[in-house]
Design a protein around this nucleic acid. Structure first.
Lengths: 395, 395
DNA sequence: ACGGATTATTGAAACGTTACAATATGGCTG
DNA sequence: CAGCCATATTGTAACGTTTCAATAATCCGT
């Protein structure tokens, strides 16, 4: 049972799509005949200042049914004021008389005015977009969802929106962030899984570009981050296993080039050392290792005579992989072996047997990152924008 | 153990944040003194056409370190061509001579030119953004991740980016989509969990706004959708349970106002009826029901004498809830009871005991939706943009 | 009633791009 | 060589907003 889920998907991809093709040709969208504008001599305006149905791209796209969207000019014409005045009134400029402001506000509401983001963006240079750089080939459980959820919580109502920037797998980590900065794809950027000397952090600091990272770094220059105290988690986990009399521990970890993995390693190894026991770290398990592969490796390991008697899992996958491997080897958690894990989703409530956990609230992490990015974009001191979430002792 | 995970998070939120405050005040960003431009008579240009350090918002934001971004004008000046020519050359307009095109391309690459999205958007009316409307308060396992992942797969390299539009919980479903259309927040929109007569579908069809829904509807007008054959899944699931001799089935379903839930219900009920047996549908379980609550309800139900002997789960949560409830009641899957579920993530490989599943590839669904939205935006016939993914029989 | 200060409003320009219409260039035919 | 067509390039005008500088309106104390 080493088969990877992804492979199953491939099979499905080729074999199992049924498409309904409905062959009524029907009138095609968007082939309204190109209207010919009257030729005008250079410098001479056509008589009608605005042709009744201009060759508007929006209109063309919407199949000819779009009605003109109100702009500042519309409101200006409606109220008899200048465009500038309307703009300032809506921006609540104190220079504008209160009565004028209300008048404009009323007209805007009545017409259903909503400012054009593209124009604002072009004029001000601010995109009102937060880019979230994510690698979507890993982390297939709740992580992405919770992070985005929290981020949305924090950003809803602020006028900022979250755009997903898919991190290209295998490319250098800097490229995504550099593209965002160079093409001004956002006003700020959020990314995760920092390395101790993450090139993205260095680059963004150099550029003075607002960001918040999920994970600390070891740069001396302070920068905004949100992190979870993985070292404390690992320490507590080790202590709990020791309290249950376990002596041969193992922590199921991705390779160590990420900050969080390093912290986990430090915490586990230090706590084990303090108690005079060992803590094994498997070499075979990387980020690319599928759930089934992780499980198979653990099962193999647990069937050896010197098998660990206490396993620390990080996240659902390693926890459930451990439980499955234990079960497959005929062991009983709580008897020959124990599992402690970081509870990053509600799925832990459904595992049997139940295992000892400490909470990491990723939704909260997302929320913190959103709030901090707002403050970072407002120019707040980076050293004030650092939050370390502690593991919540669960039961 | 009815405690909800969300409550745990609240506790953590208030109790367990440690923030590091570093009190070195340091120079604040963005308070460079406002430069006074020389007063000019109306109509008379100032001598220096471009002040050496203009009060550029980008520059101000970047802490004064930003160097001017090359524009079409820069390239035009560099090559001695007109801005229009440069624009068309980069757009690969066939009217432009090949040598000119290459010249421009070279200059653009050399200068690191990247077109300004805001300007393009303002001019063309196209945003190059796809809005993904998602409710981030439910669906806490892989769903969001896989959907976004697939969508990114399909959109990477097309110039489109995915923006998350958080669906406001409890509000009418139309409002999100309406905002996207009215404020032209994107060129197309994707949403999920359709209802049989989904108001969003109706509205978008009326507006002629490109979209793809995850889930079919029962409108007679064809529209683009991607769906999974939940009816077939439920039917097969029932048949498998029957083949194992089960007679009192239950399907763990959210309430029926969504299309997918209706299809599941139809499939299960019809297949059960055909075999002359019953299929129970719990009333107590809704979308808001937490994992732990679902499990508790199932445990309660399974401890009654007329308990079901075959359970159909949809998704990880109901499957694991069923397994946990079964385990808590001292039953043994495969002996007194069986579980069949829809395998929507790799976590199923880790459940013990293993359960019978059929695959739903949500990453594939996301990819299909992305591809279809591109075609919908290109004006392709809606009736050709409908894909029904079949359950892949797993083992 | 008058200059001068304050308050309120406005005109014009610009952000970077694309689309239209016009013009320059060259080659060909009669 | 005029006349014409095809090809290649360019000037100008938008898109909708914000900002600067300038103007108009109002108020105040003498």
């Amino acid at each position: 049972m080493m088969r990877k889920y992804r492979e199953v998907s491939q099979v499905q991809f080729f074999c199992c799509i049924v498409a309904f093709f409905c062959h009524t040709p029907g009138p095609r969208h968007g082939n309204t005949p190109r209207r010919v504008r009257p030729r005008t001599c250079p410098g001479v305006k056509p008589l009608t200042d605005r042709p009744s149905t201009p060759a508007d791209p929006l209109l063309r796209r919407a199949g000819g049914r779009a009605k003109a969207r109100p702009t500042l000019r519309t409101i200006a014409a409606e109220t008899g004021l200048a465009v500038t005045t309307v703009s300032r009134a809506l921006a609540l400029d104190p220079q504008i008389k209160a009565s004028t402001r209300d008048l404009v506000r009323a007209a805007a509401d009545r017409l259903g005015y909503v400012p054009d983001r593209a124009a604002q963006r072009l004029r001000t240079g601010r995109t009102r977009v937060v880019q979230l750089v994510l690698n979507l080939d890993h982390e297939f459980l709740g992580f992405t969802h919770e992070l985005i959820g929290g981020l949305s919580d924090a950003l809803t109502g602020t006028g900022y929106s979250v755009t997903i920037f898919p991190d290209i797998l295998g490319s250098d980590r800097l490229s995504s962030v550099r593209r965002i900065v160079e093409a001004r794809l956002g006003d700020g950027v959020i990314f995760n899984r920092t390395e101790p000397f993450d090139p993205r952090v260095r680059y963004l600091l150099e550029q003075g570009f607002p960001f918040v990272s999920h994970g600390r770094t070891e740069f001396s220059t302070p920068h905004p981050w949100v992190d979870y105290d993985n070292e404390a988690f690992a320490r507590i986990a080790v202590e709990r296993l020791i309290a249950r009399g376990r002596k041969r521990l193992m922590i199921v970890l991705p390779p160590a080039n990420f900050s969080f993995a390093q912290h986990l390693r430090w915490g586990a190894v230090a706590a084990a050392k303090a108690a005079g026991i060992s803590c094994e770290i498997p070499e075979a398990i990387s980020l690319d290792t599928s759930a089934a592969e992780t499980m198979a490796w653990l099962r193999q390991r647990l069937s050896q005579p010197d098998r660990p008697d206490g396993i620390i899992g990080v996240g659902e996958v390693s926890a459930m992989a451990a439980l499955a491997a234990i079960s497959d080897c005929g062991l009983v958690p709580g008897r020959e072996i124990d599992v402690v894990a970081k509870r990053a989703s509600a799925i832990f409530d459904l595992m049997r047997p139940r295992i000892d956990t400490m909470v990491e609230d990723l939704r909260l992490a997302g929320r913190s990152m959103g709030e901090m990015l707002l403050r970072a974009m407002a120019g707040e001191e980076p050293s004030r924008l650092q939050v370390l979430h502690q593991p919540l002792v669960d039961f």
